[in-house]
Design a protein around this nucleic acid. Structure first.
Lengths: 139, 139
DNA sequence: CTGAATCCTGCGGGATACTG
DNA sequence: CAGTATCCCGCAGGATTCAG
């Protein structure tokens, strides 16, 4: 039996494994968790404080998914109160470089994006201004 | 007045511009659109067929956002029936490399991720198996 | 053919309270 | 402290229809 799905190279197909893996890391929070853990082991509460805007629930979900996919290691210390430490696995560490490339790109092209956005938004403001002008004239 | 937000380097802050730009490209569809347009100019319908699983609505939304942020150029030919062509802008083309790095990573670590997932999932199956075993024994 | 508009549903995701 | 459980709401996003 051919392992067709295993080696499916067509990223545009929904059943492509590469694409399914890609979706795992291309979301709002996973990159931020990687950025955080890149600096070293962190506890749940530390991550919660460090990553501004993430909720308890989303952090748990994200960490669980990353753990399941072998990106982070979760270590529980059986003490009271509980201590849980998260760190990148060797596999997770291989993601640092490509994920960081995104951060670098984002930072390096801030102005261009901002400028494009302004230009685009002004495109629709002009008709509005004309409309207002015509409304004013009608008085 | 300090332009604090403009140069905010702390990716972990929600008001960090880098992070806001990062979110633009770290979603389910944007990378796929880039992969598609990387091969050249495409029409709306072509993209729709090419990117398996994307809906008309999501493709429109994604393309609009990318256009607004200066990543893609949209050209409308005033003919009937309408022809609209999408292509990467120079800015969008600078994203090809980092975005492709993700695809390469995904493809290169398929097995590792799959293996980690299997291991993780089996971790919870064992208690179930034991439970079943005990149920069987009770008969 | 390319979309905008409308409708409608599921579930993403927040807030809160509870457990180990 | 680190989560799970519950409740609940808003909107993401699919299906469909209409327009240019």
């Amino acid at each position: 039996m051919e392992t067709k799905q295993q080696t499916q190279p067509d990223i545009f197909r929904a059943d492509c494994l590469s694409r399914q893996v890609l979706v795992l890391i291309a979301d709002e929070w996973t990159p931020l968790v990687i950025y955080a853990l890149e600096e070293g082991t962190m506890r749940f509460g530390q991550l919660l404080k460090r990553i501004d805007g993430i909720s308890r629930k989303m952090l748990t979900q994200t960490l669980r998914a990353m753990e399941r996919n072998g990106l982070v290691q979760r270590v529980v210390y059986p003490v009271v109160p509980p201590v849980v430490e998260y760190s990148l696995t060797p596999l997770g560490q291989t993601l640092i470089e490509p994920i960081n490339a995104l951060r670098v790109w984002a930072y390096g092209h801030l102005q261009e994006v901002a400028r494009a956005r302004t230009t685009y938004d002004q495109r629709d403001q002009k008709p509005l201004q004309e409309e207002i002008a015509s409304l004013v004239q009608q008085r």
